[in-house]
Design a protein around this nucleic acid. Sequence first.
DNA 1: CGAGCCAGCG
Length: 610
Amino acid sequence: MSLFCSSCLKIPQPFDVHSQEHLVLRRIESCKSIQELKRIHSYIVKAIPSLSTQQLIYTKIFSSCAAISPSTDLSYAHSLFTQLQNPSISLYNTIIRYFSRCKNSEDSLTALLFYRELLVKGLFPNCYTYPFVFKACAQSGALREGEMVHADVIKNGLVSDLYVVNTLMRLYAVCGVIGAVRKVFDGSPQQDLVSWTTLIQGCVDMGYWKEGVELFFDMCGAGFRADGMTMVVVLSACANLGDLSLGRKIHDYMRDQKVQFDVFVGNALVDMYLKCGDANFSWKVFDEMPVKNVVSWNSMISGLAQQGKYKESVNVFRMMQSRGTKVDDFTLVGVLNSCANLGMLELGKWVHAYLDKNQITADGFIGNALIDMYAKCGSIDEALRVFEGLKCRDVYTYTSIIVGLAMHGRGERALELFREMYRMGIEPDGVTFVGVLTACCHVGLLDEGMNLFLEMFRVYHIKPQTEHYGCMVDLLGRSGLISEAEKFIKSMLVEPDAFVWGALLGACRIHGKVELAERVMEKLVKIQPEEDGAYILMSNIYSSASKWRESLKIRKAMKERKIKKTPGCSSIEVDGVVHEFRKGDNSHPKTKDIHMFLDAIAGHITFNGT
DNA sequence: CGAGCCAGCG
């Protein structure tokens, strides 16, 4: 096989170094593989030994390497570079740029070695060197090294170059040193839009959302006009703040200033509107997006689920499929989450099969979502099987299965896995404890629950939240220790909320404590006057105690105070159809049969005395 | 020769 295709690289006669060089460069650019590149390189070494062409040709070769295998085959470029005699600063810049693009920290650190090497050789780094060195530091989280390079920059008098300043700010931002970002920003003789965006993003990434948005307004005051990237960052801050009016203000700004509307900006808008609770408007933005990508779909799927609109979320997934858009991990996690909350076992299983078929390892987010889906859809054994099959388990994995087991009344197994988690050295968090305490509740393990509650703070330094207190009140209350539960509430360090009082009210119902229930009821109504839960529970307590008149009074009070009824809702999927059930809603075609069956079950339970 | 962006689990 000839090295060059005849059409583009016939060596011209008479021999002309310059036109030959031009052809070689073009040939390098069109290389499709490292092997091809190697062949051309060996040709060059033999045919054009002239060093004058070295610079350009090697620059091209390195950038071709980067184009062919963006993150792998660095070894070839590396070995080529070491063969060069006295590479110029530009060539050093090229190789540093090449290595700085690597995502893994080991390779990006190699870029730093080249930087040290050029200093040792007495070369002078320039304003094209530092941006890549800082990028390499940022990618490998090499803060210390970065700080030393920062000192070099000051020595070399390059602190006024915007590219240098901006990449340095970026380095400090990804290392979470927001003070240093600000210092570099303030210390720079000039700032541009990228400087502002980098500063804002540094704030937003650290969770200083409000400050980030304030900085955006400062930026406008300083006479800058934002571009799409700035907007994406500011919108994500609004999304995290959940501040719809602020988000709208930003959207208005974008329309006023005619900020370029691309897919990134569109996705950020969709996400912002959903997280701020305006699903309708996010639909509008989504529908009007001229170009959508997988992120657009994923934002809708997970965002709608966050708003509790699980059915819509699944519908978006189906739309996505009918459009033939390729799904990714994010999509699958999102749809599994919606399945879990809808009881859509069949679709959940389909996702599981899809994973197997496409050889997607169900570790990490996907595995955890899968466990949760099976558990919430009632297939706790399948959840356990997935759990056993996972190679990597984290706090989410354990918490999902513990909560799932607790829900299914398998408290002992939940606690076993909690202890296993400890042996594995995985730190539980507040949610894990909600799971184990719930497990104790459902099995009536009073002492165990008490010990765990105390351990939570003493051993794990997790401050109990009202959910945890609620579990404990529930546990004490179910065990019949009503006055202890009351005492427990009095000892709370945080203000008891509806969770806690609700648990006590529940205990009153089980044990028929009408007087206490009345007092608890008062507290509950004060905390959440427009919720119906407490009223309904109270009315049930009265009717259980045969106090029909009082029961009726409660119902009437609900009507008078216009208490909105939040209907309890559950759903299940049978043969691909989702059946929804709401409290007091008899619209299901088989309502009669269902109620008869339920009565039969209820009778069975009483019969067994459980 | 060069900088910054969006989405996920309990």
